[in-house]
């Protein structure tokens, strides 16, 4: 086995895996705090990426500024979905399944809107950073891969610190640990729900914006990314943030190994295989708490 090929496969796999991990982190965060699997996650990411596209390509903003504004949009959109749709539904005693269907409806609506506003022709999306690749001995790492890795590591570290040390982060964990007790100590539970939707949507949008230069942009393009995020989340146990990161990294590397040493078809279907296998063999994933709810 050629070591150079292997290291390319590993680094490339981790770079892709970082994006899956971000996607997965958003899903897990929302699921953990609000009990809802967000099937609109991919479409929220898509529409936010389109907003970045509109600002950067159509309005001529610097691409980084456009990306930041798009993240703000994602936060707002996530909070509006929670406050405007899910909370009224919860107030009327909607079941969790009902809430999940609401997120599916949100996704389909956003998908339709994106098609109406931006059309279905495939658009190219600018890289956030351009420059010469990093060379380390035999290894060359393209700058976009470095950005993915850096973004993945930095965001994971910030989230870790947030949940470990800040009042709000600990309060979010408290809400998901025991909602009634959280209300009793004075944590504004509804606002925490809105915050986790905002934060989760931002993470999805970061993934979308990092992936778009390679994936290109079209209303249905993010489905693959969403499924990989799901696979990473399931692999990590669905309710574990470190698990989501590990799941994303592992999936990225496995995919690259499958593509290099197996076939491109194997690579494309690996995420589904992972989802099915994990759910059948080890439903609480690698790092999940094992409290899998049975229907």
């Amino acid at each position: 086995m050629d070591l150079r090929v292997l290291s390319d496969v590993l680094v490339g796999g981790l770079a892709a895996g970082a994006v899956y991990a971000l996607m997965a982190l958003g899903l897990v965060l929302i699921y953990k705090t609000t009990d809802v699997v967000n099937f609109g996650h991919g479409d929220i990411a898509t529409v936010s990426t389109f907003v970045a596209y509109a600002l950067a390509v159509q309005a001529g903003w610097p691409v980084l500024a456009a990306a930041v504004a798009a993240l703000g949009f994602a936060a707002l959109l996530g909070a509006v979905v929670e406050l405007g749709l899910l909370q009224p539904a919860r107030f009327r005693q909607a079941s969790v399944l009902g809430l999940v269907v609401v997120t599916l409806g949100v996704g389909l609506t956003l998908n339709g809107l994106a098609g109406i506003v931006w059309g279905h022709d495939v658009k190219s999306f600018p890289f956030l950073l351009t420059g010469p690749p990093l060379r380390a001995g035999e290894l060359t790492i393209p700058v976009d891969q470095i950005l993915n890795l850096a973004a993945g590591v930095a965001i994971a570290a910030v989230l870790y610190a947030f949940f470990r040390f800040s009042d709000l982060g600990v309060a979010m964990r408290a809400v998901l640990s025991n909602r009634t007790a959280a209300e009793l100590v004075g944590i504004p539970v509804r606002r925490v729900f809105a915050l986790s939707w905002a934060l989760g949507s931002v993470l999805g949008a970061v993934a979308g914006i990092l992936a778009a230069p390679i994936l290109y942009l079209e209303p249905n393009r993010m489905v693959d990314l969403l499924l990989r995020g799901f696979a990473a989340a399931v692999l990590g146990g669905m309710d574990s943030l470190p698990g989501a990161v590990a799941g994303g990294a592992l999936l990225g590397v496995l995919e690259n190994l499958a593509g290099t040493y197996g076939s491109i078809d194997l690579k494309a279907s690996l995420a589904f295989v992972v989802i099915v296998l994990v759910l059948v063999v080890r439903p609480h994933g690698l790092l999940g708490a094992g409290r899998v709810r049975r229907a």
């Binding site: 600990v170 964990r173 408290a174 998901l176 640990s177 025991n178 009634t180 007790a181 009793l184 708490a289």
Partner: peptide, 9 residues
Amino acid sequence: EGRQVFGDL
């Protein structure tokens, strides 16, 4: 009633 501590904290 029933203590309701934050078990994961």
